[in-house]
């Protein structure tokens, strides 16, 4: 697949930093603290964002240790395994019990909602969380399932022909959100 042309930069490193700080505050406010709170990132970039949010949440609450963070690979739970070649699965890692926790699922981009649907099914296999909330860095619209995020870094209306690319220092060497297109 040819790399699509860069259309616009949606967020620079500073914007991304501010958005994450605000989201951390919102998570603490909504849950009235961090008791029984855990963050679970959807692999790969959701995990990176979850780790950053966890550190900020700990900062907001002046905790000695960050809140627990897990990582979920949802490859085996996707609803499109029959319509495209199998993608290699990666190990999930949830180093805490999910039972009765408030779990904040974290992903980089919310689009059709199918990944979140798969993540909810996967999460259930680890136990019954008290409640599950959703945090995403970018909500690009175009939902195909009834899914809504609780915490959003930036809302960006897009067309299906465009692609939203989230770059993070840990995985890509820099922090940036860009929109790639798309017309032809």
């Amino acid at each position: 697949m040819a790399e699509d042309r860069l259309k616009a930069v949606l967020m620079e490193a500073r914007d991304l930093d501010r958005a994450l700080t605000r989201m951390a505050h919102e998570i603490v406010e909504r849950n009235r603290g961090v008791e029984d709170l855990a963050l679970v990132g959807i692999k790969t970039r959701g995990e990176v964002i979850a780790r950053r949010l966890a550190a900020r949440v700990a900062g907001v609450e002046r905790l000695a240790a960050p809140v627990p963070v897990g990582a979920l690979d949802v490859t085996l739970y996707r609803d499109d395994v029959h319509t495209r070649p199998a993608r290699p699965a990666a190990p999930s890692s949830l180093p805490f019990g999910v039972q009765d926790k408030t779990v904040v699922l974290v992903d980089d981009v919310l689009y059709t909602g199918r990944t979140v649907r798969a993540a909810l099914t996967a999460l259930l296999d680890y136990g019954r969380a008290a409640r599950v909330q959703l945090a995403v860095l970018v909500d690009r619209g175009l939902r195909e399932l009834p899914v809504r995020a609780d915490f959003v870094g930036k809302n960006v209306p897009t067309s299906a022909r465009e692609r939203v690319r989230v770059l993070l220092a840990e995985t890509d060497g820099e922090d940036k959100v860009a929109i790639l297109g798309g017309e032809g």
Binding site: D73, T75, L76, Y77, V81, A86, P88, A89, A90, P91, S92, S93, T121, A122, L124, D125, Y126, G127
Partner: peptide
Amino acid sequence: EAFREVGLRPVKKVPA
């Protein structure tokens, strides 16, 4: 490695 992790979960089954 990914499937080994599945074997360690409370529910050792995936819908793939």
